[in-house]
Write a protein that binds this DNA or RNA. Sequence first.
DNA 1: GAACCTGATTAACCTATGTGAATCGGTCTT
DNA 2: AAGACCGATTCACATAGGTTAATCAGGTTC
Lengths: 252, 252
Amino acid sequence: MTSVLSAPPGTDPVERFLHRLAKFEPLEAEARDALRRAIVRGPLVPPYQEVHGESVPDVVVLLSGWACHFQMLGNGKRQISTLVVPGDFADFGFLTGSAADIQYVTTAPSQFGRIRARQFSELTEQFPSIMRATLKAAAMETAIGRERLISLGLRTAIERLAHLICELWWRLSVAGLVGPDNSFHLPMTQAELGAALGLSTVHVNRTLQALRRRDIIGLQGGKVHIHDLKYLTTLSSFDAGYLTGAAPSRAT
Amino acid sequence: MTSVLSAPPGTDPVERFLHRLAKFEPLEAEARDALRRAIVRGPLVPPYQEVHGESVPDVVVLLSGWACHFQMLGNGKRQISTLVVPGDFADFGFLTGSAADIQYVTTAPSQFGRIRARQFSELTEQFPSIMRATLKAAAMETAIGRERLISLGLRTAIERLAHLICELWWRLSVAGLVGPDNSFHLPMTQAELGAALGLSTVHVNRTLQALRRRDIIGLQGGKVHIHDLKYLTTLSSFDAGYLTGAAPSRAT
DNA sequence: GAACCTGATTAACCTATGTGAATCGGTCTT
DNA sequence: AAGACCGATTCACATAGGTTAATCAGGTTC
């Protein structure tokens, strides 16, 4: 599936990013090299650091850690719209060159990589494959958003939670961040999970209990253990198609 | 805001599309001409016609009528994720060149315009402004999706409905499809509204009644009359920023 | 114009999830 | 070690919205 050199998991975060990107579209060795040279590694950012868009948005990539997009309403409630995991673009504002309209927070110590807007557009001109890969990454983010909409629209609490865990399991697997025992870090509080799933904190807790009681998953100290992936998958009618670009095999 | 020739509303649907597109990014007269020549007008499609993605997705534009993207779950419930109004791209699958993963239905007699994939990429090469405008259109669709997610995540039924109506009012205004009396066609059944808002048909009806009783809107025969736009706006904390590319003026 | 059909409307009832508040367990601070 | 926090957990209670099913109204068909 991947071309030539598939970066082994557990390597350098920049390699992880390249590896992820190349899954969307094969990248020539020179394109990879150019990207490697263009990415500037940022400092380690502490948790709960808000990141605001700049007027001329550079390309920002999450190298390690965790972040999420959110929006607030007047009543103080917040909705998390996107979860950004290592290897993801932090946001796609740079594609339109307009001021990034979205703010995001880190929820774990995180490191971002950055490519100057100007430099990135030179890169995409030189290597159209980079642009194609980037557009596909953006399309996947859209698909993820659509799937989350479906969750909020017609899945129950337990199904939403299960679906989210399946999604993260899949995405983090691709990034090489899932342990051999099907465990991964999930640096989000239950309140944050609620904000992502459209549920109250209390109900997230109840729902988590239900999954734990049935021995489907374990969750403690920001680490998830999946004990029964199959159950999770069918419970939430999770279909990884939207994460791979494959045709969805939805119900009739 | 718009450049040189702003197409007057009520004109040819292709002009409406160009007018909409140029709002995202000014288009040179030659670019407009090239687009005009490239667009092939399709036949009038009856309501409830499902349109499936092709393997090599052409650029498809809704010229007139109404359509929506939806997905189904195993239990037969459906979620409408996107509403496509005249002047919109029907979907953005062509940006990635991968098989369009999304199916959509018309809910009114509709006419689509089509530009061959190959031809479109030649156009964007010749006129980068077309690509920029298209990317911004895609970004707006993403923003709309995000806003709908917020609706499902933290707005009540009446707020969701109000927000949707505000959104459509705005989008259709830009397309020149809102009458001087603040009315517009909304060719969706209450069941479909429910599928878009994550509500049951019955509750859509109840909610509609509430808005009617307070004389905020009128809705009959697929036509909405807005009597109190200000009320609707504040009720749903509608902020058109996400439809214009302007910075959002969200609550702190 | 009788039989149909589809969509809107109502009513009665039910439940998934929200709310508010208290408790508990760690961890960090002083 | 005494607070002070923060996040997880529980409990008791409230309610928005779902479900089922019946009725109604307008438009079509034959």
